[in-house]
Nucleic acid binder design. Sequence first.
RNA 1: GGGGUGGUAGCUCAGUUGGUUAGAGCGCCUGCCUGUCACGUAGGAGGUCGCGGGUUCGAGUCCCGUCCAUCCCGCCA
Length: 596
Amino acid sequence: MNRTHTCNALRPADAGQTVTLVGWVDTKRDLGGVTFIDLRDREGLTQVVFNPGANQEVAQRLKTESVIQITGKVTARSAETVNPKLGTGAVEVLAATIEVHNVCADLPFPMDDDKADKVNEDLRLEYRFLDLRRPRNIGLLKLRAKAARAIRAELDGQDFLEIETPTLFKSTPEGAREFLVPSRTNPGEFYALTQSPQQYKQMLMVAGVERYYQMARCYRDEDLRADRQPEFTQVDLEMSFIDREDMYKLIEGILKRTWKETLGVDIPTPFPRMSYQEAMDRFGIDKPDTRFAMEIQDLTGLFKNSAFKVFQGAANTPGSVVRAINAKGLADLTQGELTNLETIAKSQGAKGLAFIKVEGGEWKSPITKFFSEEEKAALKATLKIEDGDIIFFAAAPWEQASNVLGRIRLESAALLKAKGRLSLPTDQYNFLWVIEFPLMLWDEEEKRYLSAHHPFTAPVKEDEPLLATDPAKVRGQHYDIVLNGVELGGGSIRIHNPAVQKRVFEDILKIPQDMVESRFGYMLKAFAYGAPPHGGIALGFDRVVAMLAGRSSIRDILAFPKNQNGRDLMADCPSPVTPKQLRDLRIRTVEEEKKA
RNA sequence: GGGGUGGUAGCUCAGUUGGUUAGAGCGCCUGCCUGUCACGUAGGAGGUCGCGGGUUCGAGUCCCGUCCAUCCCGCCA
């Protein structure tokens, strides 16, 4: 090819030059006596002019999205024909020769960005090669590459080694469902695709690498969401000889640089920190969106002697609370919206959703008749109740009440946003560290403790004695990085002492000794050979890029995403394999049992 | 596994209380047009109303089932 310029390169100073451009036909405007073609490549658009006698008939027959190469002279446009919308709008190229590299079939959907954004996503995914061709989507891939570059530059500059770890790993007993890979050379045995390189990176620390990172592909066989794909990318890193403060500083540096180099935005550091307890108390969620308040207020004390038995009962039950939020200005929500909020509350285990609507100076509610004047006055003061507000209550054990109001808070914010009464600027970036998570959570079904994060998280030093007496009270040296209500990543300082690790596996998590041996034996062995203190973190790279791009779906920023059923609609997979393939793997498939 | 929303032309959508031949814009095809830039303009083709069943004289419209998509819950150490 003899391409001399991209389609976003030519300016008036280039007038007179003979140039060769290659690209796709973006639009064709055929005026009969003259034909204009906007030629597009990755970088932009340039208008090409075809006059009679100069291959105009070829241009007139072109279909959009065909690939052509033209050679011609750059000309400055006359003042009244300049197009200020284009970078190259002050010039055009008078085509002398044209070569059609490929014609394009009729398009399945419009390529115009605004129209294409509305087209069914499954059709766009089937034709992902066309969807990606749109400038807006190419831009997202560029953004992603830029973000990756910034992250690598920062980590390289801090002497991290980029190391690839296997994706074919061992199946692990706890955690996300894994994709299994049958081993042909070891019949009847399976690898699992890594959910994360967690154990490998800890082994690298034992191996003396000290600072490791990787743009790690991870796999989880769980149900999909807008921000969850079966394969995704983590900025995975691990460091030796550090504490939590070192990790906060490192990540703040990475994110600061990434935001600066992609968006040109300066984000202030250090980021605020909030304990898990505080996050749940104030926002009812472990990843609070702090761009708006609507904070949860505790009313447990107020209702200790209330005539309203539901609140009074909860207020006097140890571990239970009475709490409320004021959804300011949402009193005019529809019955359907209210019912929907109720459904959400019930999905979190609540029996119902008590509320007070304040309209025309009147408290409209099924429960206010039980309240004394003092209680009403106290409510009004605590929740700053005004006309147009609606108050939602939860009376339940602390965690459940928090969850309920946390969900109601987010849903209320969404309603207020839809009604135009709340605006959450997309260029506001409220980063937040959430810290001091509980190390263990009691699982009622299995009647045992489960790791809140993963079993390698080290307990907070002063809580270590509680491991034996009250595991639920032990806080872990775990940290989550949260942005505008989205969890970007999390990590922890790890256990590096084999005795402590063994105790966590066997005494706390009650994993049978033989299973600990078969699953984690090599880790315990490794730790016995001089494991350094270490810790790390993993950032969901797709989510980071989605936040940079202001997108809610990470499908937008993956080159070839899968749909919600985990299907690649372009390649049409997963798909059946041949009987021979199955035979080689000693696998037999079974028809699903028919329902009676 | 559960809940919400949606499926009508290639695309985006409209389609009233169940009523005669299912429409619009864009795209596509055929003309005209020498300064357009979402070019304009005249004409034309294009439909298994997701699929199956039911109610009815009559179903895009009502009922049942089912499939697909999407958002959410469960799940995601």
